[in-house]
Simulated scan of single mutants.
Amino acid sequence: MSYLEYRVTTVPHGLRKVLHFNWGLLLLLAAVAGFGFLMLYSVSGGNIDRWSAPQMQRFGLGLVLMMIVAFVPIWFWRNMSVLAYGVSMLLLVLVEFMGATGMGATRWIDLGFMRLQPSELTKITLVMALAAYYDWLDIRKVSHPFQVLLPLILIALPMALVLRQPDLGTALLLAMGGGAVMWLAGVHWLYFAMVMLAGVGTVGAVMASRGTPWQLIKDYQFRRIDTFLDPSTDPLGAGYHITQSKIALGSGGWTGRGFMQGTQSRLNFLPEKHTDFIFTTLAEEFGFLGGISLLSLYALIILFCFASGLRNRDRFASLLTLGIASAFFLFFAVNMSMVMGLAPVVGVPLPLVSFGGSAMLVLMIAFGLVQSAHIHRPRQGGR
């Protein structure tokens, strides 16, 4: 045992947890959130109280929640996984009966001091439940047809409830996030090939249902597909968002127009500039260099999580960390693809940057789980 290792093992248990805390990951999260504060200040025209200050308060609360979650032993969160999934499902059911409606969708529960979006919570509790299931299951049985059925049910139930809100983007993220955990757990690739074939068939059925009594998705969702394929067909209607987004992205060039100098956001050409399309404001004001800087921070967060997860010898903790990292990747990848015109507009916020309470707090709790797995992972000599 080295001198440094000896010193770590002789410090009090509580202080040892602080020493094992992944401070690099925390700094990266703060840096990404800082991008968000800066851009929210910009799109509000220099009014810090409108969006930036509330976002700072939420991030501060999120930090407290992350610390609390982080210092609780990971075995506790393993035992709570099924309950957490059940609570999130109950909240999704409550949205059906007492949900608050906004912009044509019923996705929130009004708590008075904030509006909670249960589908955001479900993105994480689903990963927890699947990680706990595969931790319990014999690794030799992960690809048995019967053992694959339960995870599919766990994924399909929240997807069905979220699609009723309707929220196609979150439903797709639930499917992809759950599928990522199944892949990481070692489920055979043939199952994923079958799902992809079924997906192609579903897309065909959805397109064939258009204009029929059994139409499978809403008219506005069909318009989003049309806009994705050819935004110029309705540049002032359904194609307006993506057309203005591309103008903002292109006008930024390499270094951007300068802070608070973006014409698309300052002149209100860009809709949802503080939520789903905030990345285009960043790209317009700070250019390619600003966009790639944010993307690099995201990549480092993923790298930190994967490095921690792959070194963790606890199967639940490892799957949980890798699953949350995969879900986080999907969040920003889908948003950036959407605003660049590489994917249909499905209303997915940019993590830690877009204005929003539920998404911010849930993500900070999720990274608290990652920290808990990191702090309490089995170490040589019991450190």
Score class of each variant (00 low, 15 high):
residue 63 L to M: 13
residue 356 G to D: 07
residue 242 I to T: 06
residue 24 G to K: 09
residue 70 A to V: 06
residue 365 I to F: 13
residue 301 I to F: 00
residue 121 L to Q: 05
residue 164 R to V: 01
residue 192 F to M: 06
residue 367 F to S: 12
residue 279 F to T: 00
residue 5 E to W: 14
residue 348 V to C: 07
residue 25 L to R: 03
residue 68 I to N: 01
residue 377 R to C: 07
residue 131 A to M: 09
residue 44 S to V: 03
residue 369 L to R: 01
residue 352 L to K: 04
residue 64 V to K: 06
residue 2 S to I: 01
residue 82 V to W: 13
residue 10 T to M: 14
residue 37 F to V: 00
residue 161 L to P: 08
residue 238 A to W: 00
residue 111 L to W: 15
residue 22 N to G: 08
residue 373 A to H: 09
residue 248 A to E: 08
residue 201 G to Y: 00
residue 65 L to F: 14
residue 320 L to T: 03
residue 286 F to E: 11
residue 144 H to M: 02
residue 98 M to K: 14
residue 218 K to M: 11
residue 101 T to E: 12
residue 191 Y to E: 11
residue 45 G to D: 01
residue 139 I to R: 15
residue 205 A to C: 03
residue 287 G to Q: 10
residue 300 L to P: 07
residue 106 T to D: 00
residue 137 L to H: 10
residue 295 L to K: 01
residue 138 D to E: 08
residue 118 P to S: 15
residue 21 F to S: 03
residue 132 A to G: 09
residue 35 F to M: 12
residue 168 L to H: 02
residue 141 K to H: 11
residue 222 F to K: 09
residue 272 E to L: 02
residue 343 A to G: 10
residue 333 A to H: 08
residue 148 V to C: 15
residue 379 R to K: 09
residue 254 W to V: 13
residue 339 V to G: 06
residue 196 M to L: 15
residue 74 I to H: 00
residue 154 L to Q: 13
